[in-house]
């Protein structure tokens, strides 16, 4: 596919986008985001130089995907599969060598200036390591409102009130709005990262291994939070992960990547229960599991306990911070 498709893509959706840009999501036939034939090449270090062109390595090799409104597409793969690079291309954190990205009917692959800024406020990214993606010298208040400030937008309702309201939504104590990232635990810091993403009311949130660095108990809370926020706000996720069990909990559809290509793509249950591609099968069978009979026994015991009087179950995912 060549760059001329950019024009074609614009044409097909131009009427809808032009007449009611804000209501474009209503046209459910058209996905919120469509990436077509994305390619990203990197120069191989140590090759080339003064005397010749460097060898190139294709990290992403012809990836096409769609994220529909209000759904979660999970991109899974092992290290070096190109999943994170794909996410960066989609979010325009890196420029594709070729291919195109259409967001809400508008091609954004080469968008600049005002159009890029608008795109950036619609697409937000949550990264893996909460500490390194939050400026340690800034307060929560400053971190969370930074996306608005960069875009020259007014903070609705004033900085403090706005921050506190966001903190409450992601399950943080609003009284901590003047604290610094280092004063929070890993899970809480990741909540700050999520709050920052929410500040601009995005329509697509890209989660790049957003729960991978967390302990399992904290990870469970963050997954719950991400699911709840999606229910409440109605945005879409592009969820990058290597952990298939996590993907099973959050995805509507799954794309499996290997060596820069998507080898299999489909509804979550279809991919997990009836994988078509050899690689997907290998990947699924490699996941360590607790024996099903142990699991069954444990759940039966837990149910019996829950039924018995006087026992209280572990607390639900709460907002205490």
């Amino acid at each position: 596919m060549s760059t001329t498709s950019t024009g074609a893509g614009t044409d097909t959706v131009a009427p809808a986008a032009a007449s009611a840009p804000a209501a474009a999501t209503a046209h459910s036939a058209e996905p919120l985001l469509r990436a077509t034939d994305l390619v990203k090449e990197f120069a191989v270090p140590g090759t080339g130089g003064l005397l010749g062109r460097a060898d190139t390595f294709r990290a992403v090799d012809g990836v096409s995907l769609e994220v529909r409104a209000r759904e979660t597409l999970a991109l899974v793969g092992e290290s070096g599969s190109g999943k994170s690079t794909t996410a960066r291309l989609v979010a325009r954190l890196a420029d594709a060598t070729s291919g195109e990205v259409v967001f809400d009917g508008e091609p954004v692959t080469r968008a600049k200036g005002e159009r890029l800024r608008r795109f950036r406020s619609e697409v937000q990214v949550v990264f893996q390591d909460p500490y390194s993606s939050l400026n340690p010298r800034h307060t929560v208040e400053r971190i969370v409102t930074a996306p608005l400030v960069y875009q020259g937008r007014k903070v609705p309702g004033g900085t403090t009130a706005f921050t506190q309201q966001l903190m409450e939504r992601v399950g943080l104590d609003p009284d901590h709005h003047r604290r610094y990232p280092s004063q929070f635990s890993g899970g809480q810091a990741q909540r700050i990262g999520i709050a920052r993403a929410l500040a601009v009311s995005p329509r697509l949130v890209v989660c790049d291994e957003a729960v991978s660095a967390l302990d399992v108990s904290v990870q469970a809370q963050i997954i719950n939070l991400l699911r709840r926020l999606q229910r409440e706000e109605g945005f879409s996720y592009l969820f990058i992960a290597h952990d298939l069990a996590v993907v099973r909990q959050i995805a509507d559809r799954v794309a499996v990547m290997s060596k820069g290509r998507i080898v299999e793509q489909g509804g979550r249950d279809a991919v997990f229960d009836d994988p078509q591609h050899e690689y997907t099968r290998t990947l699924l069978s490699a996941v360590p599991r607790i024996r099903p009979e142990w699991e069954r026994a444990r759940r039966e015991a837990a149910e019996a306990r829950a039924a018995a009087p006087g026992e209280t179950s572990a607390p639900e995912e709460g907002t205490t911070a």
């Binding site: 635990s185 899970g187 809480q188 302990d215 399992v216 108990s217 904290v218 990870q219 469970a220 809370q221 997954i223 719950n224 952990d243 298939l244 069990a245 996590v246 099973r248 909990q249 997990f272 699924l284 996941v287 599991r289 607790i290 099903p292 699991e295 572990a314 607390p315 639900e316 995912e317 709460g318 205490t320």
Partner: peptide, 19 residues
């Protein structure tokens, strides 16, 4: 709290006190 690969669990249990 462990996410399962075999099925989706309605609401994962977190452990607040740990955090």
């Amino acid at each position: 709290a462990v996410p399962r690969i075999d099925d989706e669990i309605g609401e994962l249990r977190g452990i607040d006190s740990v955090e």
